[in-house]
């Protein structure tokens, strides 16, 4: 499987995407378990409330000040094709209700695994949040916001 086969055309054409690759000296199944298993997620990121499952919401938590678990990042598992593709929506507390989308692609490479990560929609989500606040400003601000609005519209 190559990247061009797995990457949806609308992603390839989208400029608002962060792309990262990483190599692992381990089979894809092992890397996959670290992306989907609640306890293993906690070893490099944050533990999930439960193992990830397609079509279900997920929540990553951290220990709160009162000793309880606080939701940190959440979203919905859009697509799961073990051990090659995981696609989730990714909401961060600070972004309110704005969704971004994260895709993990695992490919066999050099006897190990190559992971490609795509994070889409960050700029649109954050610009949307900023516009939501700035929309309450005096109309005199409009001209300053023209370029930002244009940037959001062009997506």
């Amino acid at each position: 499987m190559t990247m061009t086969e797995t990457m949806r055309p609308e992603v390839a054409a989208n400029r608002d995407v962060i792309t990262k690759t990483a190599f692992f000296d381990a089979p894809r199944e092992v890397v996959w378990s670290f992306l989907t298993n609640t306890e293993k997620l906690g070893r490099w990121y944050h533990p999930a409330r439960q193992d990830l499952a397609e079509g279900r919401d997920y929540t990553l938590t951290r220990a709160g000040d009162d000793g309880g678990q606080v939701a940190l990042i959440w979203g919905r598992v859009l697509e799961m094709r073990a051990p090659s593709l995981l696609r989730v929506t990714f909401v961060i507390e600070e972004m309110g209700t704005a969704d971004t989308e994260v895709t993990f692609i695992l490919e066999e490479a050099l006897g190990g695994t190559r992971l490609t990560l795509l994070h889409e929609g960050v700029e649109a989500a954050m610009a949307g949040r900023a516009l939501g606040l700035l929309g309450h400003l005096d109309p005199g601000w409009d001209e300053h916001l023209g370029s930002l609005r244009a940037a959001v519209r062009s997506r």
């Binding site: 962060i18 990262k20 990483a22 381990a26 890397v31 490099w44 992971l115 960050v122 900023a130 916001l145």
Partner: peptide, 25 residues
């Protein structure tokens, strides 16, 4: 208005996470 910086923030965020993932694996 610094919308351009969000990309840089998350780029750095994932660099850190993926390094931690490599270490864990």
């Amino acid at each position: 208005r610094g919308a351009a910086d969000w990309i840089g923030y998350f780029s750095g965020f994932w660099d850190g996470r993926l390094a931690a993932l490599q270490e864990a694996v």
